Simulated scan of single mutants.
Amino acid sequence: MGIPMSIDVRAGRAGCEAEGEAAAAAAVEAAFAVLRSADIRFSPFRVDSELCRFARSETVASADLVEILAIGERARVASGGAFSVRAPDGSLDTNGVVKGWAAQRAAETLREHGVTSFCLNAGGDVVTGGEPEPGRGWRTGVRDPWDPRRMLAVVEQRDGAVATSGTYERGAHVWDGRTGERSLPLVAATVVAGDLTTADVLATCVLVLGPQSLGWAVEQGARQAFAVLPDGRIVTAAEGQ
């Protein structure tokens, strides 16, 4: 997917026994296989990908592609058209769904292999399970868009996900589905949710819709949401507020 990915496994191993470590390694490899498969199948940059062949009407959508398109359509409707899997040129681009969806699938693969404590980092979007050590959750830093050495917040949770959408690293790669405009009201938006599919899609929606959408994101399933305005101010919303 053109981004760094890592998996930190703390469970699914019998102490330091070789058998436990081998099982954990097999689980990690299976999770990475899920990510590689999603990249091959749904990349808009591979002319032979399932996505591109579907867009050219050369194949019918698989169950996975149907699910991805359905997630995108629900987000489009919920956001009033701000989220879209159609690029400004009209081409089909599901990247706004696929990364979070694939990383969540990979996390579920780890659990299917018996790994109960892990942190999967997909280019800064994180899904976690269990605890890295007894008594505390995994800690995910939300970085300052202008200073990668500084954290704006640290989110601690056990089973959950954190996703950030912004323009400070990859430039104007997110567009407003209603207008095609790439000049957006926020520098970055971060969403904490129970799964990475939800967190990733909602972070993109908030980036497009602006700071007034934080409460809406909570209504849509976010546990917490952060937004960084161009002047450096940070606004937040959370469950129960």
Rank of each mutant, 00 (worst) to 15 (best):
A102G: 00
T167Y: 03
G194R: 13
Q212L: 10
A193G: 07
T94H: 06
L92D: 01
V235A: 00
R158E: 04
V174H: 05
T164K: 03
D125V: 01
F118H: 02
V126H: 03
A87E: 09
V98G: 00
L35K: 03
L120K: 08
V9G: 02
V174A: 07
V228P: 00
A227D: 02
P4T: 06
E29D: 15
F118N: 04
V206D: 04
A238N: 10
R170K: 15
F54A: 13
G221C: 11
D231P: 09
S91V: 07
A189K: 00
D200C: 13
D8L: 14
T59I: 15
P88L: 11
I40M: 11
R76T: 12
G123Q: 02
A18S: 14
T164Q: 06
A38W: 06
S117N: 15
A26V: 07
G90P: 01
G2D: 09
E219C: 08
E112M: 08
E239L: 13
C52V: 13
V208Y: 05
G232K: 13
F83M: 05
E219T: 12
N121Q: 06
M5G: 13
P44W: 07
A237H: 06
G130D: 03
N121V: 07
G80K: 06
A188R: 02
H113F: 15
V66L: 14
F118Q: 01
R158K: 13
S213Y: 04
S62F: 09
W216A: 00
V28W: 00
T197C: 09
P134L: 04
E58A: 15
P145N: 05
G20R: 13
V162E: 01
G81C: 06
L186T: 02
S49G: 14
V9S: 06
A163V: 12
R223K: 14
A193Y: 03
P185S: 08
G12C: 10
V206N: 01
G72L: 13
A38H: 12
G137P: 07
R182A: 15
E108R: 13
R74D: 14
S183Q: 15
D89T: 11
L196A: 12
T204W: 11
L229T: 09
G90T: 11
V162Y: 01
F54R: 11
M1T: 05
G90Y: 14
V228F: 05
C205H: 07
E29F: 04
L209D: 06
P230I: 02
G177C: 08
E131W: 02
A82R: 02
V85A: 04
E58T: 14
C52T: 10
C16G: 10
G96T: 11
A227I: 02
